[in-house]
Amino acid sequence: MLEVRDLRVHYSGIQALRGVSLDVRKGETVALIGPNGAGKSSLLNTISGLVAKDTGAITFEGQRIDGLAPWSVTKAGILQVPEGRQVFAEMTVLENLQVGETALAERAPTYGLEDVYKVFPILRERRDQRAGSLSGGQQQMLVIGRALMGGPRLLLLDEPSLGLAPVIIAQVFEALAELKAQGLTILLVEQNAHLALTSSDRAYVIEQGKIVKSDESRSLATDPEVTALYLGQD
């Protein structure tokens, strides 16, 4: 579904990606793990068109999407949930969700308002509240819900657990599991490697702008190097 081939990206003088290749197949949840500054977010931002590539190719459902503007990428069905729960704080919860519909353009919605409320019931309760007044976990649910309103065929998630309490993280990832069960394809960037490996089918390990390992998540979870470096066990 998504093919990234030998992607190189630099910005502000730093080589962020040094020839990254990666595949995401339909219906899969693929995780991307690695230390801070390894290039995880750069990769997502390049796929979604926010950052320009130097060389390489990105193909989505057979069509080249590298070089497209962000809004054209979303119209092809790739929606990114950016890092840091960026809700539109001054708008209500409902308005935030309605803005998400823009990405549909002429495509038919895959998740309507009711479907989003079913996944995240708290959003229905809070629909008239200013998004800025929600808790961190609720804001994370809102930005995922907002992306769902845009009818994603591929959902890019950037650090959904960042800064959330463990019990809230569990709720968010339960919802993601539900979305996966409904057939949604997900590319997940996550610093919490344990969480990433238990909630994905396959995973890539990225270090200093290069993929150093890729395998089924189950196998990576028992890989001695991965456990030593990312899972904090010896």
């Binding site: 503007a69 929606l79 708008m91 990405a103 353009a105």
Partner: peptide, 11 residues
Amino acid sequence: QDEAVAASLGI
């Protein structure tokens, strides 16, 4: 409110 987020939502 946020140009980058708006762009990432297809605006």
